[in-house]
Design a protein around this nucleic acid. Structure first.
Lengths: 219, 219
DNA sequence: GCCAAAATACCGAAATGATGGTAGGGCGGT
DNA sequence: ACCGCCCTACCATCATTTCGGTATTTTGGC
């Protein structure tokens, strides 16, 4: 079993940081490969087009750093991170995503990601991030830390409350939600009051907005 | 002044399709450049990081095909297309975007784009699209045509209705909207009724959902 | 088996939203 | 000058949502 203190054989051989990249957008994959391939101190050892493939290729190659998109088919980034860290708890994973909703960041960090990069990051930002993570450091932009700090103090929603919120965000009325969940309209109202209190809003429309911003539901 | 019937000097010289690419994500830009650069029949002549730069570089290079992201700083894709086509009505522009909301597609096509590609398009799809557009053909995926057909039969919102809808989508109440727009709450209700009728919905929450799906507002 | 949390449910009052009809002022086009 | 459209505005009425407080049952963990 590999661990963080094992000298990585391939690094020793090539002297390069071995990187796995995963993204369902072929353009992004090409771009990452091109940028990384040009660096003298790193190389791409595997490219995956979805989450499942990313886990398989990680198992085969055991790269120094893995760069994963959060939204991918078959298995999303968080799922892939969990699978990978089941094999190696010290695996170094960078999450690369277009969106920065609170919930996605939180889930990714809970799953054990070392760094969280937005896709509009600059070239040097991204390459430096790979180098830092390879050295065992973490790399979370200050703007994201702020978002986290703001969100962490809020209570989390229960499963049922999330069900209600999801239907709410689809534009359903209380009656429609009750029919959909096989509960009474009164119960829906009770759940809604809890949701409003937890999200610190006063109306359903506000709730939709906040839920969307926090990544609790996607409209 | 160039026009569609002028023989393009650079093509005659190099025999390659000269492509301009524009995207604010450096990764995507790199990816496009790598893919296009590998093709024997095309080459990247200019790379822009935002809309204004795209227009400037188009003016300088007059490429055969321009690949533009829709969402860019300083000037969005549609604005860039309009500027470019002011110089050359026959300019061949491909729109490349992550999202496929009805309104964005419609605006892009109205502005005179020849092709509309989603960023998760496959490699060959993208390269073939460039070749087809260079030959003067268009290239709009069937799935997008369907979306358009579905949306075209609906009435369009007036400017004031869009103002109301925007605030609505921010979770504002009728009273808050009225204060924000310096109109009475009654007027807000009148606008809302028009909005509901035009979007074919029955409540404000449904309106938010539909407006977001059609790209009328972004939450 | 017990405790805490979650899910379910009801009542009633107050606020907000939805829907009908109606209408005057402004503005651009024919 | 007239027509159509947009923006504005009001009244009345009904439906829905929001906000108190309260209570039972179910579920999961210790």
């Amino acid at each position: 079993m590999r661990n963080a203190f094992t000298t990585k054989p391939d690094v020793a051989q090539t002297g390069k940081i071995r990187v796995l990249i995963a993204d369902d957008h072929v353009t992004v994959l090409e771009g990452l490969a091109a940028m990384i391939g040009r660096q003298p101190d790193m190389m791409v050892v595997a490219e995956a087009a979805d989450g499942r493939e990313a886990v398989e290729l990680w198992t085969q190659h055991h790269p120094d750093v893995a760069l994963l998109d959060l939204r991918m088919p078959t298995l999303d980034g968080v799922g892939a991170i969990e699978q990978i860290r089941k094999q190696d708890g010290a695996a170094r994973v960078i999450v690369l995503t277009t969106y920065d909703t609170d919930n996605e960041i939180l889930r990714a960090i809970k799953a054990g990601t070392k760094a969280y990069l937005l896709k509009d990051a600059h070239r040097e930002e991204l390459l430096d991030c790979i180098r830092r993570v390879n050295r065992g450091e973490t790399c979370i932009p200050a703007s994201l830390v702020e978002k986290l700090a703001a969100g962490l103090c809020s209570e989390s929603l229960t499963g049922r409350e999330l069900n209600v919120l999801e239907l709410l965000a689809r534009g359903k009325s209380n009656k429609e939600i009750s029919v959909n969940l096989y509960i009474s309209e009164t119960t829906v109202k009770t759940h809604l009051r809890s949701i409003f209190r937890k999200l610190n809003v006063l109306s359903r429309t506000e709730a939709i907005m906040v839920a969307n911003r926090r990544g609790l539901v996607q409209i």
